[in-house]
């Protein structure tokens, strides 16, 4: 539950951003993110809120672990946690 999941900001409307999580586009709140976020940035989403703007130089390494985990099925608790994090965003 503390893992969070990274996604790419597609558009921003006030404190709501549309974020792409591996092709799934969902709305994420920006009201408690640590730094100003712009379109194209990657954020770490946790239960529907961006909690961190991922530094650009760290994006590739951050995404890699998630990509491996997402290749596993839902019986894997880490994979299930990531799916739950995406489900926590708004449609």
């Amino acid at each position: 539950m503390c893992l969070g999941v990274p996604g790419c900001v597609i558009s921003i409307d006030g404190s709501l951003a549309v974020v792409d999580f591996w092709g799934v586009r969902r709305s994420v709140r920006l009201d408690i993110v640590d730094e100003p976020v712009a379109v194209g940035d990657y954020i770490l989403n946790h239960v529907g809120h961006a909690i961190r703007r991922i530094p650009p130089e760290s994006i590739a390494e951050t995404l890699a672990m998630y990509e491996e985990l997402m290749a596993a099925d839902e019986s894997d608790p880490m994979t299930a946690d990531i799916s739950a994090e995406i489900a926590g965003t708004l449609k």
Binding site: I32, V33, R52, T62
Partner: peptide
């Protein structure tokens, strides 16, 4: 350091 700073997320701490 790619996720954690010394001060942390200040707006989140405020809320």
């Amino acid at each position: 350091p790619r996720c954690v700073t010394k001060e942390g997320n200040l707006p989140a701490q405020r809320e």
